[in-house]
């Protein structure tokens, strides 16, 4: 017989989250013939399509660095949308664990975000390699990319917890979120020029944390300039608020996952 008392609770919890995350990752990619290659191909093809469309068909005379500008925008948006889209149905999808083995619900969200983070980190690594071909310079402040990633991680977990709890009560909420993501894609400066945010649409900078994170990410990973610390502080506060609300809703209402069909 095994004896869980021999291991510290923290170690066991980390193992459990790691196990859930690796299982998610496995399920997502290993069922298909190209497997994990899709984790790179999907964003690369998106970037290429948008680059060709906007650089040659719509705007024509684009800065050569526009592909890097797009790369970061799409990587951030893909991470946010993939996580939250999966997050909507996460509680219902893991009902078999919650009901039969007493799974800690917050671990499900942590694991899901971690499994998606692997692809995101690999994409950022690819960006870093490509960027040398475009004469991008880095400094010690580029390490702040980790703080931005932590901010994004908090936001996706918090938002996913909120969405998943709402989905227990409104089963067609997933369609509403799909439309919201489509709208979100065009309200965040992924393709269009982010300087408009400061000059024309400042409410987008302060009202949408993804916009702020993206602008700061480009500052440190593309332009080698300082982060906007006010925006960073505000976005981190957004992350903490989303996480607190999500955690509260999860603890208060998620038991409904067993009661509802």
């Amino acid at each position: 017989m095994t004896n869980p008392q021999n291991h510290s609770k923290l170690k066991l919890r980390l193992e459990r989250i790691g196990m859930l995350a690796s299982t998610e990752y496995y399920q997502r990619y290993y069922g298909s013939s190209l497997g994990v290659v899709w984790a790179f191909l999907n964003p690369l093809f998106r970037i290429l399509i948008y680059y060709l469309a906007f650089s040659y068909l719509i705007f024509r005379n684009r800065d050569p660095q526009f592909i890097l500008y797009l790369f970061l925008g799409i990587a951030i948006w893909q991470y946010f949308s993939e996580n939250t889209n999966r997050g909507v149905t996460l509680l219902k999808g893991k009902k078999y664990l919650i009901q039969n083995v007493g799974m800690a619900k917050s671990d499900i969200f942590l694991a899901s975000a971690l499994s998606t983070s692997v692809s995101f980190i690999l994409n950022v690594f690819i960006y870093w390699l490509i960027s040398f071909g475009f004469d991008v310079e880095y400094s010690i402040s580029s390490i702040l990319v980790l703080a931005l990633f932590a901010n994004l991680f908090l936001i996706v977990i918090g938002v996913s917890m909120i969405l998943s709890t709402i989905h227990l009560y409104f089963s067609d909420f997933k369609h509403v979120w799909d439309i919201s993501l489509l709208l979100g894609f065009w309200t965040v400066p992924i393709i269009w020029d982010s300087t408009y945010v400061y000059t024309t649409y400042p409410f987008m900078l302060y009202g949408n944390p993804i916009t702020g994170i993206l602008i700061n990410l480009r500052n440190v990973m593309l332009y080698n300039t300082q982060m906007d610390w006010t925006v960073f502080a505000l976005d981190f506060a957004y992350g903490l608020v989303f996480l607190s609300i999500g955690y509260f809703l999860l603890n208060r209402f998620s038991y409904k996952v067993v009661e509802r069909a």
Partner: peptide, 8 residues
């Protein structure tokens, strides 16, 4: 087993 608190 991991969810039940057994080490891997």
């Amino acid at each position: 087993a991991s969810i039940l608190g057994v080490s891997l």
